[in-house]
Amino acid sequence: MEDFFQHVINGVSLGSIYALIALGYTMVYGILQLINFAHSDVYMVGAFAAYYSAQFLGISEAPGISTLVILLASAMIGCSLLGLMIERFAYRPLRKAPKLNILITAIGVSLFLEYTAQVIFGADPKVFPTVLKDSVIVELGGVQIKSLDVAVLAITLLMMLALNFLIYRTKIGKAMRAVSTNVVVASLMGVNTDRIIAFTFIVGSSLAGVGSVLVGMKYPKIDPLMGMMIGLKAFVAAVLGGIGSIGGAVLGAMIMGLSEEMVVGYLSSTYRDALAFGILIVILIFRPSGLLGKNTVEKV
């Protein structure tokens, strides 16, 4: 039983990280009907942005809240800039091109980033800075709640609340929803749709940046291909929840995180990655629109 609770805690923690990345896929899909394959590499660049900032500032071995904040900010800024550039130079020129061309471009951008990163950062893994001390905060009958898991959960929750506020309570959020529902009508309302699309990339990319720091914090080894598997899982989470749906992405990510943790805990860690593909195949067969992916769901 204690085992089970421990797995739930770990699973939710993993799910939160998937959620942060899945949101970027789902938001860009909602607004452009494009699967942004480069998103997982934006996430990877976030980890390196944090890594190099820490090096530069000499805080690689200075765990604490201020380090956490600085690294989050560096990753978010790095990811935003990259996301913005990808949108501006790869996707915007193809706005009126057939969907397939854009999709292939997305794959191209992804490969370009992965291999450029190997040239610039080197292919060897690097050790991510120590962001927070990992200590057991509470122990309840054998179940350990660790500071890192609490941090992951708290930061994710904060991000979700901020995102929710942005999308449902602000003018720009309303414009994002409008553009994702109907670009043409949105521009008839006076919305500069290119600007809103760029902004959506900024938001999605920053969330991936937050995810990259949280992952680096828990599994402190980063390399230029680190985005591939986690990006794929986050993408499956977005599809599972119903791509385009914000709530769906979070739900899908939690399911993915929990089931992965259970599989590892009770079956074998060999199946860890197979699970994602299994889930993808099952959804595509039985419910291609995903759990919340009906037309009634708000998409951005």
């Binding site: 309303k174 414009a175 409008a178 529902t181 109907n182 919305v191 009634t296 769901v297």
Partner: peptide, 12 residues
């Protein structure tokens, strides 16, 4: 905008 309320449509 079908998912938005009447008020939100007017605000748009």
């Amino acid at each position: 905008f079908p998912q938005m309320s009447v008020l939100e449509n007017l605000e748009m």
